[in-house]
């Protein structure tokens, strides 16, 4: 079994404890061996990069250096893939690796800083991947489908990837940059009704709630409106920041726009655990602010009318045939 180095990031220990708990459960079910990088530090989030590049990349570089060192020590397992569960962590780690290679001067300066702490990182040593990528491409849809004991029939979910996972996609790992379908495929394998969410790779607002709340509320509103338009029961995310913005700021957004959206937002590992038969409590359900548990009651019920008739913009027409979908989408 391949061992992966795992960079959890700060949120997994705080706001995204549900992500951490459900990931642990799912990893057990799927025999996914994640070895946490020892002594990791902040991923650099997004702000440092806007202020001063060298310290920002050095901060990220330290994580890469530690992970590479650990990979070397554990070479028996052949692990050289560093997995991040948070989209921002994933992007920052990948970005540092990419730019250290592309701009040798930057690489040298970062290594100069790392050398003070007795560390160093040669760009390209690690393969930096998002958790979803590992689950779908290494574990595979068929293994995931095999483990489903409680299919999520009747649950309408909006797959929401956020902007940072499929872009800029340094290693060409994602099916598309605008409409990637990886998360759709995982959720479909769990038996859920997956809506064709047009905003799946749009911005969640990032850190805007702190900097410019009105901007953030507008971005959050769009996503809620889009998911609501398709009558989704749940929004499923792959990123602690997306989850936090959609969940924790939903009430404020509603107040701001005089809307009444109630869209629970959970992590994809939570719904995976659910389909694998795990107890919702153990997966962190209930810790979200917009309670997801009422929606879970839909599991096992008859699906809502496949597409809201007339109201839905993509109502299946009896008239003219639709052009064929992409082949990946036909796998179910």
């Amino acid at each position: 079994m391949t061992q992966y180095l795992f960079y959890p990031g700060c949120a997994m220990e705080s706001s995204a404890r549900a992500y951490a708990a459900s990931l642990a459960s799912v990893a057990r079910t799927l025999d996914l061996d994640l070895a946490e990088v020892k002594d990791w530090n902040c991923c650099g989030a997004t702000e440092y990069l806007g202020i001063n590049l060298i310290p920002a990349y050095a901060l990220i570089g330290r994580n890469l250096a530690l992970a590479a060192q650990q990979a070397k020590q554990q070479n028996g397992s052949g692990a050289h893939t560093l997995v991040a569960s948070c989209s921002a962590c994933y992007l920052n780690l990948a970005k540092a690796d990419h730019y250290m290679a592309e701009r040798p001067v930057l690489g040298d300066r970062v290594n100069e800083a790392l050398a003070v702490g007795g560390l160093g990182y040669k760009p390209g040593t690690l393969q930096i991947r998002h958790l979803l990528d590992v689950l779908i491409n290494d574990i595979g849809i068929s293994r995931i489908r095999e483990k489903v004991t409680r299919p999520l029939h009747g649950l309408r979910v909006a797959p929401y990837l956020g902007c940072m996972v499929p872009r800029p996609d340094y290693d060409h790992r994602w099916s598309d940059h605008e409409q990637p379908d990886e998360l759709d495929r995982v959720l479909r394998a769990l038996g859920a009704e997956v809506i064709d969410f047009p905003l799946k790779s749009e911005c969640c607002g990032g850190h805007m709630p702190q900097i410019s709340p009105n901007t953030a509320f507008e971005l959050i509103r769009r996503l809620l409106q889009g998911a609501d338009q398709y009558k989704a029961d749940l929004i499923v995310t792959v990123c602690p920041m997306c989850q936090m913005n959609l969940d924790a700021y939903q009430d404020e957004t509603n107040r701001h726009f005089h809307t009444r959206y109630r869209l629970p937002t959970v992590f994809f590992t939570q719904v995976m655990g659910l389909a694998f038969g795990e107890d919702p409590g153990a997966l962190g359900f209930g810790s979200e602010i917009v309670d997801a548990r009422p929606a879970l009651a839909r599991i096992g019920t008859a699906p809502v009318a496949a597409e809201p008739s007339g109201a839905g913009p993509r109502a299946k027409a009896a008239g003219l045939p639709m052009p064929g979908r992409r082949p990946e989408e036909r796998e179910r």
Binding site: E178, D196, A315
Partner: peptide
């Protein structure tokens, strides 16, 4: 034009190709 995913051809019913 399905390759230009942002134009939604194949996903959005009322997007047509020139030949259609």
């Amino acid at each position: 034009p399905q390759k230009v995913t942002q134009y939604g051809y194949g996903r959005l019913a009322n997007v047509f190709t020139s030949l259609e």
